[in-house]
Write a protein that binds this DNA or RNA. Structure first.
Lengths: 211, 211
DNA sequence: AACAATTTGGTAGTCACTAACATTGGAGTT
DNA sequence: AACTCCAATGTTAGTGACTACCAAATTGTT
């Protein structure tokens, strides 16, 4: 029994997915999100509408940016529980953004920073997408709370963790908005650090030597 | 030319609106949000589907809780600009919640605390509504930033204001979730104050004598 | 070549939401 | 009271996102 089912199949599937998303983002940017039907995207990508739905369960998913949930959760889990919650979370967000942008200057469209900016702009400017985007933060928030681990010494630990996580994520979102407005000129992790400092005061949020 | 157009007409319209929303929340709670069609709501309320759409532009609006944007904005605008941003915002949120719940123990369904809790629970448990709910915060965030006023001494004042506002609102949301989970047993403003303290440290957030 | 599994296409249907038009019933006027 | 005006409602037909179901094509394996 093979586990590595296929390579060609996966390649084609991934390419189809990229093609669909690329055309979708292009059309959304050109004509607007609401003015572009899934059928238009399918026609432009040269596939049937059904195929679009198979690759992207909803129209919104054609634009969504994954938030590196895994990477952030890992960094938080690896951080010292002795530190304040917002510092543990804030540092993870800053570091995740740093690795994100550092590896994104590739010629490949799917991972290019420009493509990321295009999707981010769409998400910010389109109400329907904004709602979904924010909803996505909810899942990330839960992942952060889980990664923080259970602090059994504090009775309201979970409540505090949720509060800190949502506050940090909302602050990061502000930085993302600014980043998109500036067309990516300013470094994203720097912006996130600045936003966190503005919201929470001058905590030592720079991702230096971790305790 | 009359300005006080009518009383009976407005009464009927308001009553129709309340009836529709009451049946909607009831059906959503009983059968689930997605499993309930607008037609079902219309039938239950004894009106046509069109009437539902005229009173509530979207299905989500049947559940949405307004966040007392005006009240919060007024309190922030009245606060002293010398204080830290999160304290100005946090106090306004706490005080708004206090006035909200204090006046909500009326027998009237539309303003009853139970009805508010029902809608809140729906919003939290239903993904589609969660997204819209969070999107609503975005508008409130903008109102808060506007109410804070322009701090011309700081170059990144607007950015800092957005960061602080979104962080505070996200924290308040955490408190709302807890409040709904506890079925309103704990005082809402107390919960919000606790969440803010957890996220931002022990700032003096109690709405005592304002500076 | 033959078979199994995965991907894709087509059809029909549900549901949220909109636009255009007809109808009803209060509100103010004569 | 009769009449006009206007807001509220109803009706119909349509668009578009999304799903369920079935058929066809393509790929990996025997």
């Amino acid at each position: 029994m093979m586990e590595r089912h296929s390579t060609l199949r996966e390649q084609r599937r991934a390419e189809t997915q990229r093609t669909i998303q690329a055309h979708a983002v292009r059309l959304f940017t050109e004509r607007g999100y609401d003015a572009t039907a899934i059928n238009d995207v399918a026609d432009a990508a040269g596939v049937s509408p059904m195929t679009v739905y198979r690759h992207f369960p909803t129209k919104e998913d054609l634009v969504l940016v994954d938030q590196h949930r895994q990477l952030i959760a890992e960094r938080i889990a690896a951080s010292s529980p002795a530190q304040p919650l917002v510092r543990r979370i804030g540092r993870a967000l800053i570091e995740a953004a740093a690795t994100l942008t550092s590896g994104r200057r590739t010629p490949d469209l799917a991972t290019s920073e420009q493509f990321l900016l295009d999707r981010l702009r769409l998400m910010i400017s389109t109400p329907a997408l904004r709602a979904k985007h924010l909803d996505n933060y909810y899942a990330l928030q839960q992942a952060i709370v889980d990664a923080l681990g259970d602090d059994t010494t504090e009775p309201d630990a979970a409540f505090h963790a949720h509060a800190a996580a949502s506050a940090c994520l909302a602050t990061m979102h502000t930085a993302l908005v600014r980043w998109a407005e500036d067309d990516g000129k300013t470094d994203l992790s720097t912006l996130i650090a600045a936003a966190l400092a503005a919201a929470f005061g001058d905590d030592d949020l720079t991702p230096g030597a971790d305790g």
